[in-house]
Design a protein around this nucleic acid. Structure first.
Lengths: 232, 232
DNA sequence: CGTAGCCTTGAAGGTGATCAATGTTTGTGG
DNA sequence: CCACAAACATTGATCACCTTCAAGGCTACG
C-alpha cells in the first residue's frame, strides 16, 4: 500500500462521476476533499481495522473493499461489499471518539480517497445537498442488510441467488450479468453466514446445469431468470 | 389510533429529554417539529406499511414500535425494535419519491410525533448539530444489525442471549435487568429468523433453571452473567 | 362463550455443519 | 526458474440442530 497526496487534482475528474458529487463544481469538491490522500491497495491490504479509533473516512475510487468483522470462533463475517463511489465509515464520524465498526479490506487492486474526520464534521455536515446524498447511499446499504435479514429463513440456494443478483444489479450497463468484483466461495459463505462447503455444493450444481459460469474469481450469470426463480 | 395536533407544545418537554434534542432550546425544537402531529396507537396498530410512499417520518415518544417486513412465505421478519427517542424512516427522506423500507407496528400503547418529509429536507438537513445526532442514532442501529449478522453462525441460545442483553442494555438505569418492552416469543423468533418453537424450547429451559423470569410478556434476566456466558 | 393470539410439548425429518482428505492455483523466496 | 507455502476449490461421510407438523392448553377480549 502507498499514499499519493500530489495527485488529488487528478482524482477530481473521477469523483465527479459519482452520484455523490454529481451537482458540485470542482471548487466545491476540492473543498470537501481538503487534505485528502489517495491510497493504493493490493489484494487483501487492510484500510482500517475494527475497533481502531476512527479518525478518517474514505471514498472508494476503484476496485472494491469488503467490510467485515471477526466472529467469536475466529471466522470472518462479511457485512458489506463496497464498490466505487461508496463512502466508508462516514456514519460513525459524528460520534464522540468513534471507532471503526468494521474491518475494511481490499479485494484485488483498489484505490480510495482517505479524508480526515474533521473535514466531515466541518465541511461535509454543513453541506445540505451532500448530506442528503450520503444518507441516500446509507439508505441503500441499510436496505441491503435488511434484505439479507429477511432472507434468513430461506434455504441456502435462495440466499446465494439473492446475493449474486444484488451484486450484479449494483453495476449499471451490465448486460453481461457479471458480478463486478472478484469473489471467492469463502467470501460468499462469510457474507451469508454459512460454510464454504455448502456454498460450493450449491454453486457447483448451478455450474453443471449451466446457470452460472465461473472462471477464476469471476462469476457470470448465464440464466438470470432461473436464478431469480430460485430466490423466492 | 387518533391524532392530536393541539398538544404539540406539551410534547416539547418530552422531546427535550432525548439525546437528539439535548442541546436545543424550545424555539429551535418547535421549528424542527413544525406541522408535527402526535399520534396515539394501541397494541398492533400500524404506523405505516412497507412500500407505501414515505411522505412522513416520526419520533417515538413512548411505548415501542417494531419495524418489520414480510418474507416470501408470509412470515414476519423483524428488523428493529424502536424505543422512545428513536427516529423512524428519517434515512429515506432525502431519496426521490421514497417508500417506507419497513412496516412500523406498535407494541403495546405507544405515541409518536409524526413530521412531514418537507420539514426534514428543509429544516432538519440544514441543522448541522441535529444531523450529527441523527447519524449517531443510525450508526447505533446499523451496529445492531451488524451484530446480528456476525451472530448468524452461532447456535440459537447464543442468538437469543445476545438479543436479550442488547435490549436490556438499551435502557439506562436498568438495575432490574428487565427487557424494556413487551416481547412475545414469536417476535423474538421473527427477529432472529428462527421458529417460535425453537425459541420456546430454549427459553423454557432457561426459565426452569432460573436464568430468566417471564411473566406475561415481560422478561427479566435473573442471572445476567450466565446469560452473557451463553453468548460467546 | 367463542374466537384469536400466544405458549407448550412431542415425534419425525431434512438441511446444512463438521471433519477429513485431495486437487488446483497463486504467490514467494532461494 | 524451481520449490514450497498459502489460499482457494472440491468431494464424501456422518451427525446435530433446528424445522416441520400436529395437538392441546392458556389467557384476553368482544
Amino acid at each position: 500500500m502507498y499514499s499519493d497526496s500530489a495527485n488529488l487534482n487528478g482524482a477530481i475528474t473521477e469523483l465527479k462521476q459519482f452520484p455523490l458529487f454529481k451537482n458540485l463544481d470542482s471548487a466545491a469538491i476540492l473543498n470537501l476533499c481538503k487534505t485528502g490522500k489517495i491510497q493504493v491497495h493490493a489484494h487483501r491490504d487492510i484500510l482500517f481495522k475494527y475497533g481502531e479509533p476512527a479518525d478518517h473516512f474514505a471514498i472508494v475510487l476503484s476496485g472494491a473493499y469488503k467490510l467485515s468483522r471477526i466472529t467469536h470462533l475466529g471466522e470472518d463475517s462479511v457485512i458489506y461489499f463496497s464498490a466505487p463511489g461508496d463512502v466508508i465509515a462516514a456514519l460513525v464520524m459524528p460520534q464522540n471518539a468513534p471507532k471503526y465498526p468494521v474491518t475494511a479490506c481490499a479485494m484485488g487492486p483498489s484505490r480510495v480517497l482517505v479524508l480526515e474526520r474533521e473535514v466531515y464534521l466541518t465541511n461535509w455536515l454543513a453541506n445540505t445537498d451532500l448530506i442528503a446524498s450520503v444518507q441516500s447511499l446509507l439508505s441503500n446499504r441499510m436496505g441491503r442488510l435488511q434484505n439479507q435479514m429477511v432472507m434468513q429463513r430461506s434455504p441456502l440456494p435462495s440466499k446465494i441467488a439473492a446475493l449474486l443478483m444484488e451484486l450484479v444489479a449494483k453495476s449499471e450497463n451490465n448486460f453481461e450479468m457479471e458480478v463486478p468484483l472478484p469473489l471467492t466461495r469463502k467470501e460468499i459463505a462469510d457474507s451469508l453466514g454459512v460454510t464454504v462447503e455448502s456454498v460450493i455444493r450449491v454453486m457447483s450444481d448451478w455450474a453443471k446445469q449451466g446457470l452460472i459460469i465461473t472462471t477464476d474469481r469471476h462469476i457470470r450469470i448465464a440464466k438470470p431468470d432461473q436464478i431469480i426463480n430460485l430466490i423466492e
